[in-house]
Design a protein around this nucleic acid. Structure first.
Lengths: 149, 149
DNA sequence: AGACTATTGTAGCCTAGGCAACAATTCTCG
DNA sequence: CGAGAATTGTTGCCTAGGCTACAATAGTCT
């Protein structure tokens, strides 16, 4: 068993993530938000007034990527950039009312999608799966943190 | 427990996939191939002479995306497009010698990366994890197949 | 104060993927 | 045979992410 095998765990995991994304994206098409943008909402919903850098850290993406995402979302009326009163470098981020409404809708769809995906597992297997995945994630964070050069 | 929770399985799974990708990408930087391009190699290695559409199906990506990927890889000397002798619409794809060499190298790195990621799990847990993930994948393929409109 | 240093957001250039439309070609079936 | 349907690969336009370099601003330390 190696990367040449279709059942290789490395493939399966990335397939699971990709398929989850695909299914979710298809279900929310029509709301006007993409999945990536919805992730922005989930963060700003909990932490209104965050800066762009803070948002990028929360999403674990590049500052530049986050900035461009915000360009799109601002243009489409989901997000507001307000100048910080003390530090002129900083943009404070806030959701529009419409964004807060959409957030709820996407949330429900996300839950339903994950439920559907895990449907073939029993309650107990679901827990197992979640715990195993969390441990793998922890390990990977360690590997990613200590830069792998 | 819902999408608002950081330990939500939906987040964890996409995190695992993303981190695995990040770690792997960092480790192979310098070979001159990206992870996505290496995936192309893995397929053409097993199925030389495939058409672009066949490759796209194997990778489960768009025909257009595959075509552009091949543009880059051809330009960089990893892949050759040869005209099919019977059907003038078709390009048959072949790896260059250099690509076959790089394939081996990336393969080893991929195996090591996955091994590292799964290091915190016991042999038995690894099997469990793999099997559970495969079942979830199967379910998602069902959901993705029957288009979710 | 003034000179470094650090942080913030942006712009440029890159890979990667999706969808829709299109020309070239091939297939099918009347 | 020939007209319409299907397939193949490409192009255009979109989102999304990474890395580097940069100007503006803020912080630090002599």
């Amino acid at each position: 068993m190696g990367p040449d095998d279709d059942e290789y765990i490395g493939y399966v995991l990335s397939d699971v993530a990709r398929l989850m994304r695909t299914v979710f994206d298809r279900r929310v098409r029509g709301i006007g938000l993409t999945r990536a943008q919805w992730l922005v909402l989930t963060r700003l919903y909990r932490r209104p007034g965050a800066s762009q850098t803070e948002l990028a850290v929360m999403l674990e993406i590049d500052r530049a990527s986050a900035g461009r995402m915000l360009d799109r979302m601002e243009k489409n009326g989901w997000v507001e950039r307000r100048a910080d009163s003390e530090d002129r470098r900083i943009n404070r981020l806030y959701l529009t009312d419409e964004a807060r409404r959409a957030h709820k809708e996407m949330w429900a769809i996300a839950e339903a999608t994950v439920d559907d995906a895990l449907a073939p597992l029993s309650e107990r297997e679901r827990d197992q799966f979640t715990r195993l995945a969390a441990r793998v994630k922890g390990r990977l964070q360690g590997l990613a943190g200590s830069n792998g050069s």
